[in-house]
Structures are given as C-alpha cells and as structure tokens.
C-alpha cells in the first residue's frame, strides 16, 4: 500500500505542482492518475521513489515514510517505466533490461539470463537482445522499458505515460499486454496518463486530477461513470458523448445499446453479469 498524506510540492521557482494531496493506493491493484498536462501527475509519481522530495507531508510505502529510506536503494526496488522507454541508447536491449539486476550486484551472466527471460514475458523476440534501442520500433522500445521495470521483480511499478508516444494500434496492443501481465504478476501499479479511455481500461482505481493534483474524483471506473462527481468530471470522462453515452433501442429480437454515433455496442441482457 502506498499512501500520500497531505503532500505538497512547491518547486524552487514557486510552482505548486502538488497541493495538499491525500490518497491511498491499494496493493496489487492498478491505480491510474489521469488529468491534463501539467496537473502534477509526474511529480506525484516521482515523490513515490524520491526523485522529487515533498515540500511538506509524507509518502508512505506499507506504513514506512519513504523519506527514511535511502533514495538509490529505494529506486532500485521500484520499477519505473517512462514515455519513449527512457532506455539507455548505449546499452543493448539485454543490457537495458539487465540494468537493475546489474546495479544490485548480479553477475553479467545471471543478469543476461534474467533479461532474456523477461523479453519472453513482454513478448519480445530474444533475437533482438543484442540490438540497440535506436534499431527498434517505438512499440518495441516500450516493451523493453516495461521489461526493464520488471527485471528486479519489484512490488511496485510506476509508469509515466508509457504508451503516450506510440500509435493507437500499438498502444492498444501494449495496453492488452499490460492487463495480461498484471493478471499474472500482481504488482502494485501506479500508472499516469492523460487519456481517459486508457485510465478506465487499465485502472482498478482511477484518480481524476486537476491543476495542483487537486482530486476531482477517485473511484473505480464504474463508480465514476455511474456517478460523476460533477459536470466537469462528466464532461472530462465523456459521459455525455461517444462510446460512453449509450441509449437503449428496442429491436424485434430484444433491447440493444447504441452509442452517440448510432452504432450498436451490445445487447442488453437481464440479470447480474
């Protein structure tokens, strides 16, 4: 469990990126921070692994204040995946994935074996092990980034808009893979995105944030869709349009659900799902 307690971050230039933020992030679930650019999502994430120190308040992991931990050791124990993979351009794919095991003192051979194993896990052909990141597609680089984040088998995985820079088809594929991975691996995932659809697809808990990391609403995708906190949230999640605004249409064979574009999205069945 990760807990933010009254956390504020004011940068030296006076920007208040996070203002009195409170949140409990449950273990072994995916929590998504969603909000427009500049609302403080990255800053929140970086306060979990101490890349950014809160100006006031505390961040706790399983009841322990992260400020009491050694920063470098803490970061090695938490997976971090960022946009564009954040890969080392001078390391091969295998070396990139093996980074944290190597930092933790594993032998080159053991770290490489682990890297090859993880390439399988994230669906990368191990024939690519000795290529450099510049020789991979954007989607492949992202997979390498995810593999690197998982290499030390951390309990916590922080993902900062990891699929933001790839095209929609590849993004959909990576999202499906992440859902599959999460089912198998059971990590505490904290995922940042500005895409509501992505947030609702991946999140068990979704926190909709405004400037200064102000909480507009926190809940499961169902809770938020069924009961948006206010008109702003309703508009933000698109509850009144597109594929989330469904209406019932009677057909000779029963009732179906139709979206705002008039496309039939599904059949209405009675009883509990």
């Amino acid at each position: 469990m990760i807990e933010f307690r009254n956390v504020t971050k004011r940068f030296p230039d006076g920007t208040v990126a996070v203002d009195s933020f409170d949140l409990v992030i449950p273990s072994r679930r995916t929590t998504v921070f969603v909000g427009s650019s500049g609302c403080g999502k990255t800053t929140l994430l970086r306060m979990i692994n101490r890349m950014v120190e809160p100006t006031s308040g505390t961040v706790e992991i399983d009841g322990e204040d992260v400020a009491a931990k050694q920063g470098v050791a803490l970061r090695r124990s938490i997976g971090y995946v960022m946009q564009n993979g954040g890969l080392m351009p001078h390391f091969t794919v295998a070396e990139n994935i093996a980074t944290v095991p190597r930092l933790n003192g594993r032998t080159r051979r053991a770290a490489r074996a682990r890297a090859l194993e993880l390439m399988d896990v994230v669906g990368l052909d191990t024939a690519m092990a000795d290529r450099y990141p510049s020789q991979l597609s954007g989607g492949q680089q992202q997979r390498v980034g995810v593999a690197r984040g998982l290499a030390a088998d951390p309990n916590i995985l922080l993902m900062d808009e990891p699929f933001g820079a790839v095209d929609p088809i590849v993004r959909a594929e990576l999202q499906r893979e992440l859902i599959r991975l999460q089912r198998d691996l059971d990590k505490t995932v904290v995922f940042v995105t500005h895409d509501v659809d992505e947030a609702f697809l991946l999140g068990d808990q979704v926190a909709i944030l405004a400037e200064g990391a102000r909480r507009l609403q926190v809940g499961s995708p169902s809770e938020i869709t069924e009961n948006p906190a206010d008109d702003f949230v309703a508009a933000f999640i698109g509850a009144d349009r597109g594929k989330r605004a469904l209406r019932v249409k009677q057909t000779p064979r029963g009732r179906v659900l139709v979206d705002a574009e008039g496309r039939t999205q599904g059949v209405l069945v009675e009883g509990e799902g």
């Binding site: 971090y80 960022m82 954040g86 080392m88």
Partner: peptide, 10 residues
C-alpha cells in the same frame, strides 16, 4: 531524459 531515466532506475 536519459539522465533522469538512469536516476529513476537506481
């Protein structure tokens, strides 16, 4: 970004 990424992984 690469430098930050190196810091982020430890």
């Amino acid at each position: 970004a690469v430098r930050r990424s190196a810091t982020a992984v430890g």
